[in-house]
Amino acid sequence: MDWLERTAKLRQWSRSGTRAPHKPLLLLYALGRFQRDAEGELRYSAVEEDLKQLLAEYGPANRTTPAYPFHHLAGDGVWEVRTDRGPGSPGSGVRELRASGATGRLAPDLRAALRRDPSLLGRMARVLLDLHFPPSLHGELSEAVGLEPEPAATGPLGAARRQRDRRMRELVLTAYEYRCAFCGYDGRIGAMPVGLEAAHVRWWSFGGPDDVENGLCLCSLHHKLFDKGVLGVGDGHRILVSQRFTGHSPAAREQVIALAGRPLVGPQPGVSAIAPSHRAWHVSQVFHGSPRPATAV
């Protein structure tokens, strides 16, 4: 059985690029727990808060109960659910899962495959990360679920997928004249820019192209906050700051909250700005909550 292909083809609700990372997040969490305790089961009532936190941090703005993937992942052949009455899930309701003592764990055939080939776990994690999350979040998400995914390619499955255009970084940084589009940071060591990155507005894993109309030159801090949904780009190419973000230090106020309503820095004249469709995707699928009002100057 090709577990990498099965991992890549988890059945998810999707429409016009809508993010639905609920099953991938549960599977990543289960792989992390398997790595620490290959025989353990995950009782829904005990892991519900962990799963809620993962969905809140790495899922879309519209909240979904973790009961949904806990029940439905079993249909993909990688997960099984049992209750006090025996095999099988009682349903996708929170009350049913709690009351029945529902537990879940990786499917028996998958557990056996992971014991035979321990490297499979890291390769499965890499597929899930590559398909559902931007690279800026891979490290912290892996840490959040207790995983250290393999950095190597995933083999034929990975080779068959769309390849990134390595020229994008230089094109985007040039378009924005090597300045962060949010704060104007332009640090260098000698002639080399440092701490500047090319961010995808519509994530590459969701069909975002490797071109300037889908790119922003951002400093490392603002790239991470952009991919976490703290920051966004609204109409008129003005910066959005989520009302859910809180920070009381001068640094948080100056580097994040004060950005609300500011126009982007760049791109330079003659270069295409972010395409409206990519901005709209990020606002609907990544940005969290409502934007703060513009900060008075």
Rank of each mutant, 00 (worst) to 15 (best):
K9T: 15
L10I: 13
H22T: 01
L26T: 05
L26W: 07
L27F: 02
L28P: 04
Y29W: 08
G32M: 07
F34L: 13
E39L: 14
E41N: 14
A46M: 13
A56G: 08
E57P: 00
Y58I: 01
G59I: 01
R63F: 10
R63A: 13
P66M: 04
A67Q: 00
Y68I: 12
H72Y: 14
D76I: 08
G77R: 13
V78I: 09
E80T: 10
R82K: 08
R82L: 09
T83Q: 04
D84A: 11
D84M: 05
G88L: 09
G88D: 08
P90I: 02
P90T: 07
S92K: 03
L97I: 05
R105M: 08
R105N: 08
R105L: 08
P108Y: 10
D109M: 10
R111P: 03
A113T: 09
P118G: 01
L120R: 11
L120K: 11
L120S: 06
R123Y: 11
V127R: 03
L131M: 06
H132A: 04
P135T: 06
S136A: 15
S136G: 07
E140R: 06
A144Q: 07
A144W: 02
P151F: 13
P156I: 15
P156F: 15
P156S: 15
A159I: 09
Q163H: 13
Q163P: 05
R164C: 00
D165W: 00
R166M: 14
R166I: 12
L171Q: 14
V172N: 02
A175M: 15
G184E: 07
G184V: 12
D186F: 10
G190W: 00
M192N: 10
G195T: 08
G195V: 09
G195E: 02
E197P: 01
A198S: 05
A199D: 05
A199N: 03
R202L: 05
F206A: 13
G207M: 12
G207Q: 11
P209I: 07
G215Y: 02
L216F: 07
C219I: 05
H223N: 10
H223S: 04
L225P: 02
K228C: 07
K228H: 10
G232F: 05
H237K: 06
R244P: 02
F245M: 12
G247K: 03
V256E: 06
I257K: 14
A260S: 15
G270W: 02
I274H: 01
I274N: 02
H282Y: 04
Q285M: 03
R292C: 11
A294W: 04
T295D: 04
T295H: 11
A296G: 09
